[in-house]
């Protein structure tokens, strides 16, 4: 079984001071979260263009501004772990992982969030979204659009105000 120290050794990072290197990393098949990533089991529908995970792992999310890098690795004796980056059909899905029976995979965060062990199954790795204020509907009548200093005002707003 992986410990946090052995998981970080996979990506060539030493254990940050505030973590215990010997802490066990449980291998789970239920949904689990690592910071702004969520690992959710999904139905293994259809054939995806899987690729085998390389020895050095894969950077699932690489935050340039925040240094927020999540690495996906194979667990011990797990040559069959495959992964595919999402095609952007659902913007919140980063990619999919497939772990064959008896094997495991590791999602490791370089800085803050430690490591998560992933048991056999097919999973989607989802990321978090931010709330964005919905764009105001612009008035479609060109005579009313831009009336006054409020481009989103319509005639009723003008009467009401």
């Amino acid at each position: 079984m992986h410990t946090y120290g052995s998981a970080l050794a996979l990506i060539g990072v030493t254990v940050p001071d505030h973590f215990q290197a010997e802490a066990d990393v449980p291998v789970l098949t239920a949904p689990q979260a690592q910071g702004d990533l969520l690992i959710v089991p999904v139905a293994p529908e259809g054939e995806r263009p899987w690729t085998a995970l390389p020895d050095e792992g894969e950077q699932v999310v690489h935050g340039e501004a925040t240094g927020n890098t999540h690495w996906l690795h194979r667990g011990f004796d797990s040559p069959g772990v495959r992964w595919v980056r999402a095609d952007g059909e659902d913007p919140l899905v980063v990619g999919f992982v497939e772990v064959p029976p008896g094997q495991s995979a590791m999602l490791v965060h370089t800085d803050e969030h430690g490591a998560n062990g992933i048991g056999p199954g097919t999973y989607a790795i989802r990321r978090k979204r931010e709330f964005a204020r919905p764009e105001p509907q612009l008035a479609t009548n060109p005579l009313l659009r831009g009336f006054g200093r409020r481009p989103d005002a319509n005639a009723w707003d003008l009467v009401w105000d």
Partner: peptide, 17 residues
């Protein structure tokens, strides 16, 4: 909602790191 999954899936969350 933040992860775009149903609340029931999120309730089953086994571990957060």
């Amino acid at each position: 909602w933040q992860y775009g999954v149903p609340a029931d899936v999120y309730r089953e969350l086994a571990r957060r790191t």
